[in-house]
C-alpha cells in the first residue's frame, strides 16, 4: 500500500475555513489526507501546537490564513508569518522545516485551497513518513 500522509491543517475562521467550505460546496477534488482544525486566526497557531502535532506523528502541518491586509483582526496574519517563519528556522535543526507550510487562502478561493492541499500532499508524499513515528519505545 502506498504511503498516505496525515496532514494537520489549521484554518482561520474568517477566510481559509470559508475557502475550504467553498471548495467542498463547489466540489473541487482534493486529497483526503488533511484534518482541519478551525482557529479564530492564523495568529493563534503557536509553535507549541506545531511541535506537538509533529511529535505525535503528523506527517505535515499546513497553516492557512487570510491574505496580508485582509485579516479580520487587522494584523494577526502578520504575526503568524513572523512566528511560523522563525519556527521554521528553528525546526530546520530537527529536519522538520519542509513539513511545515504557511499559505494564504481567502474565502473566495475554493479552487486555490484544493490546489494548495494537493501540492502540499504531493510534497509530503515525496518526503516520506514522519521519522518520529518509527521511534520504538522500550527498545
Amino acid at each position: 500500500m502506498s504511503f498516505e500522509p496525515n496532514i494537520l491543517t489549521f484554518c482561520c475562521n474568517w477566510c481559509s475555513y470559508a475557502g475550504a467550505d467553498l471548495a467542498g460546496v463547489s466540489r473541487f477534488q482534493y486529497p483526503a489526507n488533511i484534518r482541519i482544525i478551525r482557529v479564530m486566526c492564523s495568529g493563534r497557531v503557536e509553535p507549541a501546537f506545531i511541535l506537538e502535532a509533529l511529535n505525535d506523528g503528523a506527517d505535515g502541518v499546513l497553516i492557512t490564513g487570510c491574505h496580508i491586509g485582509d485579516c479580520h483582526y487587522i494584523d494577526g496574519n502578520k504575526n503568524a508569518e513572523i512566528r511560523i517563519n522563525n519556527t521554521k528556522k528553528a525546526l530546520a535543526k530537527l529536519g522538520f522545516d519542509k513539513r511545515l507550510r504557511l499559505e494564504w487562502v481567502s474565502a473566495s478561493e475554493g479552487a486555490r485551497f484544493a490546489e494548495v492541499v494537493k501540492d502540499f500532499t504531493e510534497e509530503i508524499k515525496k518526503l516520506g513518513p514522519n521519522p518520529v513515528k518509527e521511534v520504538k519505545i522500550n527498545e
Partner: peptide, 19 residues
C-alpha cells in the same frame, strides 16, 4: 504522556529560547 517519544517540554523551550 507528552514526552513519550520526545520531550515536548524541551521542544517548546528550544523554540522559545532560540532568540
Amino acid at each position: 504522556g507528552d514526552a513519550y517519544k520526545m520531550s515536548m517540554y524541551h521542544l517548546v523551550r528550544f523554540l522559545h529560547l532560540a532568540d
